[in-house]
């Protein structure tokens, strides 16, 4: 889903750059640029415009305040942890869906996208109810003294929920196409299944896994609807960064909100850039 996949495609079309015989270039270009500009780019530019009105000192002051920093820390750490959990379970799920036959497999495959189709607010209140001290699962953990809802554990669980499809859907097609010869070669050389998996299969899946991880991570950082209910919004503890933006907006502190958003935006872009770079690096190996 990231830019790298596109890059592969684009190189392919480059070859015939000569004469343009297909009509419709001007129209498609016009419509594309006009819509992209009006609906995405110009509104997005506003954030940089308003940020530029902020003094540099003021900007630094906002984004380094204790509350804001803790918001970033909560968002990033929980999203990272959730993406890791998703990477592990995502691989297991993709493996099970590709390699095994069992009753209910189609249903399981169809369910993967549920977090995507289910409105985040609905997921949010359902998860909060489930993991609160009185909830079906939360009460089990409450007995042993573990609180889930209104803690960072709860936030992480909500982020796991929204992130699952990204990893599964990134890894699944690659695993489907993976040539069995690699495994057979490892097996003929005497490797057992776990060793073969970690030394031979996992490296093959790694670029896709990384893409899925990155998307799940980015989604977790930005996620609002499913997290806001279970987070409980306790300052310095469970306040996520997107919620801070919301709070500032409700207080009409637009400058603060813009500053917080800008940093969050830069983090997302940096993350995507990083993952794209690693993927481009990994692509060198795929020629063989």
């Amino acid at each position: 889903m990231t830019g790298v996949f596109m890059e592969q495609h684009i190189v392919k079309v480059k070859n015939k750059k000569g004469v343009r015989v297909i009509p419709g270039f001007g129209l498609s270009m016009g419509v594309t640029l006009a819509m992209l500009g009006c609906l995405v780019l110009i509104p997005l530019a506003s954030i940089f415009l308003s940020a530029s009105r902020l003094g540099f000192g003021e900007f630094i002051g906002v984004v380094t305040s204790r509350q804001v920093v803790s918001g970033y820390v909560v968002s990033l750490s929980c999203a990272f942890l959730a993406a890791l959990v998703n990477a592990v379970f995502g691989i297991v799920l993709a493996w099970v869906l590709v390699r095994y036959e069992f009753p209910g497999k189609r249903l399981m495959d169809g369910m993967i996208e549920l977090p995507f189709a289910l409105p985040t607010a609905v997921a949010g209140i359902a998860l909060t109810y489930l993991y609160s001290d009185q909830g079906w699962i939360g009460s089990l953990f409450a007995k042993v003294g573990i609180k889930i809802a209104y803690t960072r554990i709860g936030i992480t669980i909500a982020m796991v929920f929204v992130g699952i499809p990204f990893v599964v859907r990134a890894v699944q097609p690659v695993l489907e196409k993976l040539d069995r010869q690699y495994e057979e070669a490892a097996m003929m050389l005497g490797a057992n299944k776990p060793y073969t998996f970690f030394r031979v299969i996992l490296p093959e899946l790694f670029p896709a896994l990384l893409a899925g991880f990155g998307l799940a991570f980015a989604r977790g950082i930005g996620e609002y609807g499913s997290v806001v209910f279970i987070a409980g919004n306790i300052p310095y503890k469970t306040q996520i960064a997107p919620l801070l933006i919301m709070t500032k907006l409700e207080q009409y502190k637009y400058a603060d909100a813009t500053a917080i958003a800008l940093v969050l935006l830069l983090i997302s872009f940096l993350l995507m850039f990083l993952i794209n770079s690693i993927q481009i690096y990994m692509q060198r190996f795929s020629k063989a």
Binding site: K17, L44, A241
Partner: peptide, 28 residues
């Protein structure tokens, strides 16, 4: 269907809303 300079950039720009927090999308 067409080759032109800046295709890659255009494709990346189209993807932006994917990587942005919905709260920021509202904010803009």
């Amino acid at each position: 269907k067409f080759y032109f300079k800046g295709r890659q950039i255009l494709a990346t720009l189209i993807d932006i809303p994917f990587s942005i927090s919905p709260v920021i999308a509202g904010l803009v």
